Computed example of a mutant assay.
Amino acid sequence: MASAPADDLYLAAHDGIGGRALLPRQVLGVALGAALLGELMFWGRVGLAGDALAVIDDRPTADQAASTVLGMLRQPSSSLGPREWIGHLSTVIAPALVEQRLTAAGVLRQETKRRLFSSEVSLVFTDPRSPGEPATRIRTHLSYNQPLDAADLMVAGLFLATGLDEMVLDTINPRDRARLQEQFRRNLPHPLHQLVAHALGLLR
């Protein structure tokens, strides 16, 4: 895992030069919600129990975003299934958590634009090349027929679910796209496959 999947997804969904989002905020929120839940599965904190999410290890993590989501999942009143949790996180929670994490890591920074009677604060990328790195890594692995790890497979699956692949994987040829579909089908663990499917279901 090169970096946290939700971070990679956020990066890939933005233009590095102007910081413009390539996806509507609601669509990006769904993908980020699924990716944050996927991170907890990678770290063995959450699993699927039938149609429900089950907390396996409720100890706080060293990551603030993951710990926040884990704290929500372990509340006694929490009885939502994966799709409902993705929808709940997608509103403002998931984008805000990922932006906070990227800002703390120095990937994003605040920029203030002053106007005549007001000022506007926005987030910009410290390195305008960083948004292109996740998709470039995935394209390179596919072109050399190298296996993607589970994190990159989940991110690529969320590219497909959101339509982001049409913008960031548009240069891969039919052979490489077939390789991606085959790896996704064969190598992505079932719980992560389900998260991608739930995200797709919310976006239809």
Rank of each mutant, 00 (worst) to 15 (best):
P131L: 11
T103I: 06
G132Q: 12
F117E: 01
A35H: 00
A105R: 15
L123Y: 13
I86D: 04
E120M: 09
V107R: 15
V121A: 09
D63I: 06
L123A: 05
D51T: 06
V55Y: 00
P147C: 06
R114Q: 05
V98Y: 08
L123M: 13
G50V: 08
S122G: 09
H141A: 15
L36Q: 02
E133T: 12
M72L: 14
S143H: 12
R101T: 11
S78M: 13
L102S: 08
S77T: 13
L142W: 00
A135M: 06
G44C: 01
Y144C: 12
Q75C: 02
L108V: 08
T126Y: 02
R74W: 05
P95E: 04
D58M: 11
L97W: 10
L123P: 08
L48M: 07
V107L: 14
I138P: 09
Q64L: 09
R109W: 02
T136C: 10
L142Q: 11
Q110S: 14
L37P: 07
E133W: 14
V121F: 08
A52Y: 02
L89N: 06
Q64N: 13
A66K: 02
T103D: 05
T112A: 10
S118Y: 06
Q110W: 09
D57L: 03
V69E: 01
A65W: 00
E39R: 05
H141C: 14
I86E: 03
D63G: 03
L108S: 03
T91W: 11
T68Y: 13
P128Y: 14
G71T: 06
L142N: 03
T68I: 05
L108W: 10
K113S: 07
L142C: 07
G47V: 05
R45Y: 04
G87H: 04
R114G: 07
W85S: 00
A62P: 03
S67M: 08
A96Y: 02
Y144S: 11
I138E: 05
R139S: 11
E99I: 04
G50W: 02
L142M: 04
L102F: 13
T136R: 15
N145A: 12
F117I: 13
A66I: 01
R137Q: 12
L97P: 07
S143K: 15
G71Y: 07
L32C: 00
G50C: 00
S122K: 15
D127P: 15
P76Y: 08
G106E: 08
F125T: 04
G87V: 10
V121Y: 05
R74F: 13
G106I: 06
S90F: 04
S130W: 09
L73Y: 05
I93N: 04
L148E: 09
L48K: 02
P76T: 09
A105N: 11
T140V: 14
G132S: 10
T61E: 00
E84C: 07
E99Q: 15
L80C: 07
